[in-house]
């Protein structure tokens, strides 16, 4: 069974649904405090998927994800680099995406939304080919962030773009944060590290879609985790 580790620390708050989504996708999941990794009680070696969930790690004091990123860089650089070098899978969602960019594991940075507001709303994404997006052309899920505007020249790394109902590049609110080209998620050069602002783990039930009573069946966010687990089964 594919083993996945979900990292938590003070202020991480999307851990329970992330664990559940990974279980539904067929992984054997451990939820581990970053202190246990640093203390060596748990090692990254035994896992093939690492997920940094959303939330406000350390209150986003000093900037979104920065305190946790410093911790990873200063205390876990070696094992983390090896994990990525070995082609294992890293997924950072929302605050986890911010952590990965601050830690230098993904290109670009995440700045304040163009609207200047924290906003929670559902968005439609267009997927580009990657190990995470097999069998996904368009997918819907919610965003909930104040700092999700991708800055930096990362268009070539993009795997998810915010689009309107026609599938075209969109303005606010379909693009909730004003990211150039509507970039919602990126992968690293190697293709095994994914960061995305929208939350796939919040779309794992039929009733997850906000218009399920209008016949929009939810649950498709699971596909991203299933793709990761399947890739790990086949390659790792």
């Amino acid at each position: 069974m594919v083993k996945a580790i979900v990292l938590r620390t003070a202020g991480v708050n999307c851990d329970a649904e992330t664990v559940h989504a990974l279980k539904l996708a067929g992984a054997d999941v451990d939820l581990v405090h970053v202190n246990s990794l640093i203390a060596g009680k748990v090692t990254l070696d035994s896992y093939s998927i690492l997920v940094i969930p959303g939330g406000f790690s350390y209150g986003d004091d000093l900037g979104g994800g920065r305190v946790l990123a410093t911790q990873l860089v200063r205390k876990l650089r070696g094992p983390l680099d090896k994990f990525v070098q070995d082609g294992k899978i890293v997924i950072g969602v929302c605050n986890g995406f911010q952590v990965l960019t601050q830690a230098g594991l993904l290109p670009g940075k995440l700045d304040a939304n163009a609207s200047g507001k924290f906003e929670c709303r559902w968005v439609r994404l267009k997927a580009a080919p990657s190990l995470f997006t097999k069998n996904i052309e368009y997918i819907e899920m919610p965003v909930a962030h104040g700092e999700g505007r991708v800055v930096g020249d990362v268009y070539d790394n993009a795997v998810f773009l915010y689009v309107d109902s026609e599938g075209e590049e969109a303005e606010y609110p379909a693009n909730p944060n004003g990211s150039a080209h509507g970039i919602a998620g990126v992968v690293n050069e190697k293709g095994n590290v994914l960061g995305m602002m929208p939350h796939p783990e919040r779309n794992i039930y039929t009733e997850s879609h906000p218009s399920w009573t209008q016949g929009h069946v939810g649950g498709e966010g699971l596909k991203i985790y299933q793709n990761a687990v399947r890739y790990a089964e086949e390659h790792l």
Binding site: E17, K117, F118, E119, R202
Partner: peptide, 9 residues
């Protein structure tokens, strides 16, 4: 919209 009404899934 300023409240996260989706967290916990």
């Amino acid at each position: 919209r300023q409240y996260d009404h989706e967290v916990q899934g």
